[in-house]
Amino acid sequence: MQEYINIYTDGSARGNPGPGGYGIILRYKQSVKELSQGFRLTTNNRMELLAVVVALENLKTNQIPVRIFSDSKYVIDAIQKRWVYGWQAKGFNKKKNKDLWQRYLSLARSFNIEFVWVKGHNGHPENERCDVLAVEAALGKNLLIDHYFEEVQQHED
């Protein structure tokens, strides 16, 4: 049976834009690690995508295949339907989250990644836990500044 590093992600924004956060669970065999972070002004889609990026950035190896579980159709469809590669070819012209997509594409090259869509708020234990982490992060203190969103993207809209 194939071994995988399983990654569960979720993003949240309280208002869109508004305070937001992401939640991540990294699982390999018996090892489990949770990550989360909040931002003072961002969007739900940014947090969904940032969760995937941060999860990949936190992996210590690229030698084990990775399965990423997400309830974000935005993220899953852009990757599985290969839209992101068309956006990249056009310089992400008029596309949101260019900075995060570029980070993702740079990371993804060195991993064997399989994406799995899960229905959100449907009782999936890890997805529910990631949602709690993301919401708690969004509502927490010490929120970081999503510089790209606040300084660049918001002014392009």
Rank of each mutant, 00 (worst) to 15 (best):
N44R: 01
L143R: 10
S12I: 07
G11D: 04
L133R: 07
E57C: 11
N62Y: 06
K60E: 15
K98H: 07
Q2L: 15
F115W: 15
K60Y: 13
W83K: 02
N16I: 03
V152S: 01
H155F: 15
R103L: 07
R109K: 13
N44Y: 00
D10M: 04
H147D: 00
L133E: 06
G86Q: 15
K60C: 03
Y28S: 04
L56W: 06
H147M: 00
G120L: 10
P125N: 11
I24D: 05
R46W: 03
Y148D: 03
L133T: 06
F69V: 04
K60T: 14
N142V: 04
A108I: 09
V32E: 14
M1L: 10
V84H: 05
V84Q: 02
Q102I: 13
A108T: 08
L59T: 10
L133P: 04
G140M: 05
F69S: 11
Y148T: 00
V116G: 11
D71K: 03
F39V: 01
K94T: 15
S70M: 05
N127V: 12
G140A: 15
R82Y: 08
Q88C: 05
N16S: 09
S72M: 03
G140L: 11
R46K: 06
I64Y: 03
R40Q: 05
G120Q: 08
N62I: 06
G23K: 01
G140C: 07
A78K: 07
G18E: 02
Y148E: 02
R67D: 04
E126D: 14
V32L: 11
G91D: 14
N6Y: 12
E136N: 12
A108C: 11
Y28A: 06
F69L: 07
N45T: 07
M1W: 13
A134E: 01
I5C: 09
A51P: 09
D77F: 09
P125K: 15
E3D: 14
N16H: 05
S110M: 14
T43E: 08
A51G: 14
D131H: 12
M47T: 07
I7R: 10
V53N: 13
K141Q: 15
K119N: 02
K29P: 03
H121L: 11
V53S: 15
S12N: 14
N16T: 01
R129A: 14
V118H: 12
A137R: 03
V135S: 13
N112S: 15
T61M: 09
K29D: 08
Y8W: 06
N97Q: 04
W83D: 00
G38M: 12
N122K: 08
K119T: 00
P19E: 07
S72A: 10
